[in-house]
Design a protein around this nucleic acid. Structure first.
Lengths: 356, 356
DNA sequence: GTGAAAGCGCTAACAT
DNA sequence: ATGTTAGCGCTTTCAC
């Protein structure tokens, strides 16, 4: 709460002529000199230690105020070996789920007094991740969160420096790392079963990209649910998460009147499917039901409002930080393992019994 | 691979031994000892100085490799006074435009060899921003980007420490700071004029929150465009950027058959308006035209595909870093001022001439 | 081409 | 309650 008085640099320089050299941030030594104490005493004041005389503290505080002193975190980090910073490596910054997760991670970190160093990687390749991890290892971080749904992460063990705590979101590396993931399997099962329960003979599926671990699990669960119900399993249509890819597959599906139920692996692709249905003159849900995955904020404003699987990205982000801080505080006490965040189905207006 | 002895809890707890930090990162001194050189020579190798014997360099390099040496950025920063890090303060992490801007900022920074320290603030209040700036100003960053569309930023001058370069996105503080902004005025004019040109007698407007600087400019430009055309100016309907708020106003507007053209201040609110129109049985665009703002990725998959104003968030982010790095490199040479990134109208299927 | 010394700003440990 | 000393890991300066 350092309210800065309207002293600009020039004025301050004129008032305290001797010790303050221009162009350098004032150090503890400067404060100490001005207050007539040792820099150790300044350190005690800054760190709110109790053993400082009230009178002395006031003198130090006003000296700090006068020359605009701010602690140097680099020096502090050098001394303590702690940076109070967490590195986040992520691919696909602008995907809905990732940004919600990042938001929660950053907020939870801030609450714990940590900063976030963000390192987006352009491609989810082994090399890109390795480079990012290396950069972070040189950078001042106490731990790393990796948000990148890709099989690649099975092998990042070769790149993570010894002793640097890591938490991974959305991966199957739980055998070696601390992993936080949402319950993709249950979510996809709920979506598929919901459509079967409505009376559809089968459910078509627009999957995410093959490289995505989440997408793979949703697809596997969709297939297993159909099989368990004795329903035929249509061929998988692979999209790339974009509404455009959903639209392209939707055009094909809309032309087939036997298609009455579609489960898209995210909300954007579901949106694209619905657009294709509208254009083909097929009503959703009267002629064809559609279910998405994610429950993005706009999903209930789609036309029709989208039935979808809700993911609690906020909880995922919070858990990441919680697990990571635990590792940072006691590196030996925490083993690898996967934490699953539940999903649930949100039924809106895009699903109904099949026509006829 | 690093020289970590298998410390169990009990051994580590024994307090006779000095505080040996297991997992300590190897230092230059370690590398130097192993390679049989001085740490200064290691420093030269790390910094790729020319005056090192090829033979010596190889020995040092393999020693670095063997013990997994990584430079300590805190020490380097302490010595150099540079952090190669840029702080980003933002409110509304999960809004579409902010996220895209952040993505571009982070990518551009990474390309320039800078890291991003992200500080989301929960509320766009003066106090929150001041706290964030103060945290960043503890010399952990070389410059700050503030992404926060709010009038608050008119007054942040009291909180930014002298000499720390700052670039602000989306603000009217251009008189005192370096500001990068999109051409809100032109965008809103294009949207409004497009509807007038189609033959609508007037255009209704769903504005963003009053606190938003961008929203204010879009509203002002909408009003000015109507007045310039001699069209009546309907009352402003204020939303909060969410699709839900757009929907609520949409319900009201849909009930009024004289409403034939609506300009929403972002795409989400436009989506909500269209949902309300659909529910009321009014066709978009046959019965009522809708225009948005932002051109979010999904806009062309809305039903109907949304006519909207495209903002180049990527360019905004890139410019932020460019301007900031210039300030960092030569603090005195750069004055305040605003850089405007053009917007343009993307005409899709949600606009048409008025009915009848 | 290489090394020794000093010091960046801070704090833990030990004086006083 | 306050001061002194030493050193975190690195780089700059100056010796050799």
């Amino acid at each position: 709460m350092a309210t800065i008085s309207p002293t600009n640099g020039a004025t301050a320089g004129a008032r305290t002529s001797p010790p303050v050299r221009a162009g350098r941030q004032p150090s503890m030594a400067d404060v100490a000199a001005l207050a007539g104490v040792s820099s150790q005493t300044v350190s005690r004041v800054v760190n709110a230690r109790s053993n400082v005389d009230a009178d002395t503290r006031d003198r130090v505080l006003s000296a700090m105020d006068e020359i605009g002193y701010r602690p140097n975190s680099a020096a502090r980090a050098l001394k303590s070996g702690r940076f109070r910073t967490i590195g986040v490596i992520m691919f696909g910054l602008s995907s809905f789920g990732n940004m919600r997760t990042l938001d929660a991670v950053a907020t939870a970190a801030a609450e714990a007094g940590y900063s976030i160093t963000l390192l987006p990687v352009a491609l989810p390749t082994q090399g890109a991740v390795a480079g990012a991890v290396n950069r972070l290892a040189e950078q001042a971080v106490d731990g790393i969160v990796i948000i990148m749904e890709a099989h690649i992460l099975d092998r990042i063990d070769v790149t993570v420096p010894t002793g640097l705590p890591v938490v991974i979101v959305d991966s199957d590396a739980g055998a070696r790392y601390t992993v936080v993931d949402t319950d993709q399997t249950e979510g996809a099962r709920l979506a598929t079963q919901h459509l079967l329960d409505l009376g559809h003979t089968t459910v078509w599926h627009i999957a995410g990209p093959e490289s995505s671990f989440s997408a793979g699990r949703r697809t596997a669960s969709w297939r297993a649910t159909l099989k368990a119900a004795g329903a035929p399993v249509p061929p998988v249509l692979e999209g790339d998460w974009s509404a455009q890819s959903g639209y392209r597959h939707g055009v094909t599906l809309a032309a087939d009147p036997t298609v009455t139920a579609i489960f898209a692996s995210n909300d954007q692709m579901a949106l694209g499917v619905m657009r294709a249905m509208h254009e083909a003159g097929r009503s959703v849900p009267a002629s064809c039901s559609v279910v998405g995955f994610d429950d993005m904020r706009e999903a209930d404003a789609f036309w029709p409002p989208l039935t979808t699987v809700h993911q609690d990205f906020g909880q995922v982000g919070r858990l990441c930080i919680e697990k990571l801080l635990r590792q940072i505080d006691s590196p030996a006490a925490v083993g690898p393992g996967t934490t699953i965040v539940p999903t649930h189905l949100v039924v809106r207006a895009s699903t109904a019994p099949p026509p006829g």
